[in-house]
Each structure stands twice: as structure tokens, then as C-alpha cells.
Amino acid sequence: MKIVITGDTHGKTLPRRLLDECRTADLILHTGDWKSLEAFHILSQFAEVIGVSGNVDDEVMKGKFPLQQVIQVGDVQIGLVHGHGDKKTTEKRALEAFEGVPLDVLVFGHSHIPMLRYINQTLVINPGSPTDKRKLSRYSFCFLHIDEEIRAELVFFANKQ
């Protein structure tokens, strides 16, 4: 199974690089900060979209997407959360959101800083943002492949058109 992971799209036009990968996705995960339903509708043309709401999302978006959720993909349990809040780092808030929940993969957003690493026995992923790189040199999103193995790859690109 190929999962495309994105987030922090902030209502901006989705780049072709991301959409090209979504064409072959089995599932798309969004880490929140949609800002409008437009990105959801576009992504839904390619595959099932599961997402959470973030700190810039309005009541409509919060009504459609929970603050966090756990998704079962085969025998892999994935936690999905935006990661916003007070104090601590975004990563620590995301980890604490699922404290006591056995996860194989934890996906979060908010910081726009792409990250891919293991913490204890959990693969922790922040896809960054395909539309708002902030001070980084490139935009980003992530692939997650689940079959006999779990493999993840961050994708960095310079042109968001």
C-alpha cells in the first residue's frame, strides 16, 4: 500500500509534484491546517483522504476532521495529529497525544519541518509542507509504503507549481 502524507497546505494551491504522486496513492493522510475544504476535495479525486484539524482550521474544518485519530492499515497502527499547543516541542506534543497507545507510525505536522526518525519502536513522521516551506529551501511531503515492510521517504522539491 502506498500512502501519501501531506499537511499544512493552508488553503494554497496544491503543487503538481504532490498531485502527481497522489494519482498512484492508495490512501492520503493530511496532518491538518487545511484552511478550507478545497484541498480535501482535490485530494479525494485520487484516493481516500483521512485527516485531522489544525490550529488555523475553522469550525467547519474542525467539524469534519477530529483533532487526532488512530488509523489501522493492515496490521500497522498509525496515529495522526496536527501537534499544535502550548509549551514543549511539536514533536513532544504529538508523542504525548498518543501516550499509552501502541503505534507503529506517528504522523504530525504544524512545524512545517520535515522529519523522519524512530523514537523507541515508533516511526515518527512530519511531512513538512508542500505549499509553505517557511525558512527551508524546499517544499516537502512524504510517502509511506506498507507491505511486508514499512518504508518511508521524504520528498523535497523546489518548484511548488
Rank of each mutant, 00 (worst) to 15 (best):
H110L: 09
I28N: 09
T24P: 00
I78W: 12
H84V: 03
A47L: 02
L37N: 04
F108S: 09
L19Y: 01
Q72M: 12
K135Y: 15
V81K: 02
T122D: 05
G51P: 10
G74Y: 02
G100M: 07
Q72F: 01
G11M: 02
K62M: 14
N55F: 06
D33F: 02
T24Q: 11
R16L: 15
I125A: 00
R23F: 01
H110C: 12
F141L: 13
T89W: 01
H41N: 14
G83Q: 07
L106D: 07
I28Q: 11
H110V: 09
G128H: 13
V81L: 01
S140G: 11
L116N: 01
S137I: 08
D20H: 02
G83H: 12
K64L: 14
L136G: 13
L19E: 04
L123A: 08
W34L: 10
G79Y: 05
K62W: 14
F98L: 09
V49C: 10
V105D: 08
D75K: 15
K92M: 07
E59C: 03
D20K: 11
D33V: 00
K35L: 06
R16W: 12
I71D: 00
T131Q: 04
G11W: 00
F40I: 02
G51I: 10
T24V: 10
G83W: 05
G32H: 04
I125W: 03
T31F: 03
S111C: 10
G79K: 05
V49L: 14
P114G: 13
F141N: 15
L123E: 09
